[in-house]
Simulated scan of single mutants.
Amino acid sequence: MGRHMRNLFVAGCVLLWLLPLYLLVVNSLTPADEYTGSVDWTPQGFAFFDNLESAWVDAGIGDSFGSSMLYAVVCGAVAVLVAAMAAFAVIVLPIPRPALWFWVIFSGTLFPLQIFLAPLFGMYADANLYDSRLGLMLVYAAWAVPFAFFLIRNQMTTMPPELTEAAMIDGASMRRIFWRIHVPLMRSGLGAAFIFQFTAVWNDLLFGITLSRSPEIQPVMATLNSLNQAYSSAGPPVVLAGALVVSLPTLLVFLVFRGLFLRGITASAR
């Protein structure tokens, strides 16, 4: 009886998750000039590519899509590399008070992002970093480090210290130990951390609308947010078609690397 109830509960949760996705797909197919303003539960035509063209070209989602891909890939990779080095320093190197350094770095995940917006905006305006790709890449990379550090550090604690001791006896430097021993053994954890940070940067809206305004600089979520206001005459199907395409990269990254992601999460949770 308990097993059946659990299965029914899981099935209900799946249906609740799939229902908005179904409505998103169905209403993105409706021709924009035929949209009545009410939710369509069945397809009323097939104008998805016309709606997508309006969102991609006229609203500038295509430019911001490329910008977000740059931010997510580069900043995610940089954040994972910095986090791995920080975790190596805290776990392996003989630094004083490693627990203190852990909390200093991890505290970046504990504060709400809103408290950083006002000082960041002022600093960026003074340093001419406002509305620039470099400015957004700096904040995204810094923002992604603490959680990546947490995941990688947890996996690194499971590695036997005898590996480092044996390498040091053989005369290996700390740089060589990091790149030749720890990085290869932490591939799954590094991959899981990158997927998390890729998704976080891709889905960011707050920094995008605060620190940029140009369509070619703004991340795709900021452009999608302004699409409904700037092109309200185009109709909701155009916005929904854009939202559907914008959601695909994170889904594809997870599906392609799901094995690596699951191994990394398992290793970090030990």
Rank of each mutant, 00 (worst) to 15 (best):
Q114A: 13
F116E: 03
F116A: 12
L117D: 08
L117M: 14
L117A: 12
L117P: 08
L117T: 07
P119Q: 07
P119R: 06
P119N: 06
L120D: 03
L120S: 07
F121Q: 13
F121C: 09
G122K: 09
A125C: 01
D126A: 13
A127P: 00
Y130W: 04
D131F: 02
S132F: 02
R133D: 05
R133G: 07
L134T: 14
L138T: 00
V139G: 04
Y140K: 12
A142W: 12
W143E: 12
W143F: 15
A144H: 04
V145A: 09
P146S: 12
P146E: 12
F147W: 10
A148L: 02
A148S: 08
A148T: 00
F149E: 07
F149R: 06
L151E: 02
R153M: 14
R153D: 12
N154E: 14
N154R: 14
Q155I: 05
M156L: 15
T157P: 04
T157H: 10
T157V: 10
T158V: 12
T158N: 15
P160S: 05
P160C: 01
P161C: 10
P161D: 15
E162F: 10
E162T: 15
T164H: 03
T164Q: 08
E165K: 11
E165F: 06
G171C: 12
A172C: 14
S173P: 07
M174E: 15
I177D: 13
I177A: 14
I177V: 13
I177F: 11
R180V: 10
R180I: 11
H182S: 15
H182L: 15
P184E: 08
P184H: 14
L185G: 13
M186K: 10
M186P: 06
G189S: 09
L190E: 11
L190T: 11
G191D: 04
G191Y: 07
A192V: 02
A193D: 09
F194D: 04
I195E: 05
I195Y: 02
F196A: 02
Q197D: 07
F198D: 08
F198E: 09
F198H: 09
F198T: 10
F198K: 11
T199K: 10
V201L: 01
D204K: 03
D204S: 01
L205N: 00
L205C: 01
L206F: 04
F207V: 02
G208W: 00
I209W: 02
I209H: 01
T210N: 06
T210K: 02
L211S: 03
S212V: 00
S212E: 01
R213I: 06
S214Y: 00
P215S: 11
E216P: 03
I217F: 04
I217M: 03
Q218K: 10
V220Q: 02
M221I: 05
N225H: 07
N225L: 11
A230N: 11
Y231P: 01
S233H: 05
A234D: 00
G235L: 03
G235Y: 00
P236L: 06
P236C: 04
P237F: 03
P237R: 05
V239P: 00
L240D: 03
